[in-house]
């Protein structure tokens, strides 16, 4: 193990290298009559860990996230959270939606205050708003708190969405390509913002993306999914690049380029060539783990 994995709280047990997950996804599948979108998907997310799921559209990424959120159900398999099977959505699992999903009739502050009020039903309206204000300050939006979403830029709206998710103090933060609708500059700023907030809070997080740099910047582990139908997790990458990572400094880090090349190769060719039935010897519970960044430094 490299020193790069340290600096974030991790809980590991078991001698076979499997993590005692806060979330344990056990053999979930999504089937329609005559079509299997994905199957035999197993993975865990440890407490304090940031896991990214990378794959092309159509492989069922969003469905997996919705199943974790409790908004959707799996055709097969179960998801355990702290040892208990998930049933339905919960305040323990906050979602940052792709399309911000702010309520346009509420101001930025009231959007966050609504979430605070749901988390703490006993709080008075004023107290909920005070806490919402603090949450908005953390994402640098205190000045725009009174504005309606229509009066906010795309990046600001997503900041409100981030503040709303953090305001409920979830055990697990779920993100469905949260920055894909933003321009490159805003996206970079928000990625660092999320990186900072996640580190500060020791937040356990699961994120879907197809932005390779985003995954490298944020994730401890990156799950690579093959193309659908019958998509599966083909490989798990351990991101050994040391933290803190910054967007500006990322590509100067030793090991960054082999890591990036590995993921790009997967997305460009191997996600396609590996699609379909798994190769012999593939254990869906323990997909191969690779550390491209580490191999480079050892070479």
């Amino acid at each position: 193990m490299s020193a790069g994995l340290e600096g974030r709280p991790r809980s590991r047990n078991g001698h076979d290298g499997r993590e005692a997950g806060m979330i344990s996804v056990e053999g979930i599948a999504r089937r329609f009559p005559g079509l299997t979108v994905f199957e035999d998907v197993w993975f865990t997310v440890a407490r304090g860990e940031f896991v990214c799921l990378v794959g092309h559209s159509g492989c069922g990424k969003t469905t997996i996230l919705n199943i974790l959120a409790g908004l959707d159900g799996a055709s097969e398999g179960v998801v355990l959270m702290e040892g208990r099977e998930l049933s339905g959505p919960s305040l323990d699992r906050a979602v940052i939606f792709q399309g911000h999903a702010l309520m346009p009739w509420l101001s930025a502050l009231d959007n966050v205050a609504f979430a605070v009020g749901c988390r703490h039903p006993r709080l008075s309206r004023a107290e909920a708003r005070a806490r919402a204000k603090v949450a908005l300050e953390k994402v640098g939006l205190a000045a725009a708190a009174g504005r309606k979403p229509a009066q906010l830029s795309g990046g600001m709206k997503q900041r409100v969405g981030i503040a709303r998710a953090f305001a409920v103090e979830p055990k697990l933060l779920l993100m469905d390509e949260p920055f894909s609708a933003l321009d490159a500059l805003t996206r970079g700023a928000l990625q660092e913002e999320v990186s900072r907030l996640v580190t500060e809070a020791g937040q356990t997080a699961f994120m879907i993306t197809h932005d390779v740099d985003e995954a490298i910047l944020l994730a401890d582990r990156i799950l690579l999914m093959t193309n659908g139908p019958q998509a599966r997790i083909a490989e798990v990458i351990e991101n050994t690049l040391p933290r803190p990572r910054t967007r500006a400094g990322l590509h100067h880090m030793p090991g960054y380029h082999p890591l990036r090349d590995h993921i790009m190769d997967f997305l460009v060719t191997r996600s396609r060539t590996l699609a379909g039935p798994p190769p012999p010897g593939h254990d869906p519970r323990r997909p191969p783990v690779v550390r491209p960044a580490l191999e480079e430094t050892h070479a």
Partner: peptide
């Protein structure tokens, strides 16, 4: 979905 995840 937002309301559902917030257990509203």
């Amino acid at each position: 979905n937002v309301a559902a995840t917030l257990e509203a």
